[in-house]
C-alpha cells in the first residue's frame, strides 16, 4: 500500500488536516474519511455534477480532483451553504419552488447555482440553463430548479 499524504486545507472556512492515499479523489475523502456526505456521488467520472464543490472560487466536480490537490485550497461544500442564522436564499427558494423531488442532485445544483450567482448576480434564464448544464437531475425536468435560481438571484440582489 502506498504511503499516505498529509494535506492541509480549508473547508467551509475551517482549517482541516487529513491523510489520504495518492489515488483518492477529493470526493472520496470528503464522503468516506471526513464524513461530509452532503456532497453526493452520481457517476464518479465528471458527468453529473452531484459532487460539485467550489474550490478557490471555481466550480469543480470533486470526483475529478485528487484529494492531494486540496493542499492550501479554500473549499466550499453544501455543508457550509447555510449559516446558523438561516438558509441561503438558494436553499430557501429551492424549498418554496418544490425544486427537488428525490433530492440527491440538489447539493450539486445548489453549489453550481451559488457559483453562478457569485460570477453573475443577474443571470437570464438562458444563462442559468447554460451554467447548470453540467448538472443532471432526473426527477424535475429542471423547470422548478431554474425558477428557484432566478428567484434566489432576485433576493441576493436585493440584500446585497
Amino acid at each position: 500500500m502506498s504511503r499516505k499524504l498529509y494535506v492541509n486545507t480549508t473547508i467551509n472556512g475551517e482549517e482541516i488536516e487529513f491523510l489520504c492515499e495518492p489515488r483518492q479523489s477529493l470526493l472520496e475523502v470528503l464522503r468516506d474519511d471526513l464524513e461530509m456526505t452532503g456532497t453526493k456521488e452520481g457517476c464518479n467520472d465528471g458527468n453529473c455534477g452531484a459532487c460539485n464543490v467550489i474550490m478557490d472560487g471555481v466550480l469543480m466536480n470533486s470526483c475529478l480532483v485528487l484529494a492531494a490537490e486540496a493542499q492550501n485550497r479554500n473549499i466550499s461544500t453544501i455543508e457550509g451553504l447555510a449559516t446558523p442564522q438561516g438558509l441561503h436564499p438558494l436553499q430557501q427558494k429551492f424549498l418554496e419552488n418544490a425544486s427537488l423531488q428525490c433530492g440527491v442532485c440538489t447539493p450539486g445544483f445548489l453549489m453550481a447555482a451559488k457559483s453562478l450567482l457569485d460570477h453573475n448576480p443577474d443571470p437570464t434564464e438562458h444563462e442559468v440553463r447554460h451554467w447548470l448544464a453540467g448538472n443532471l437531475c432526473r426527477c424535475t425536468g429542471y423547470d422548478k430548479i431554474v425558477r428557484a435560481v432566478c428567484d434566489a438571484a432576485d433576493v441576493v440582489k436585493e440584500t446585497a
Binding site: 456526505t37 452532503g38 456532497t39 453526493k40 456521488e41 461544500t77 424549498l95 433530492g103 447539493p107
Partner: peptide, 23 residues
Amino acid sequence: TRPIRPDGVDKVTGRALYGIDMN
C-alpha cells in the same frame, strides 16, 4: 395548498442520509 415539504431542509443542506451515505 403548497406547504414546504417536511424533509426539505435536510435535503437542501446535505443532511439527509441516502443509501450511498451509510457508514
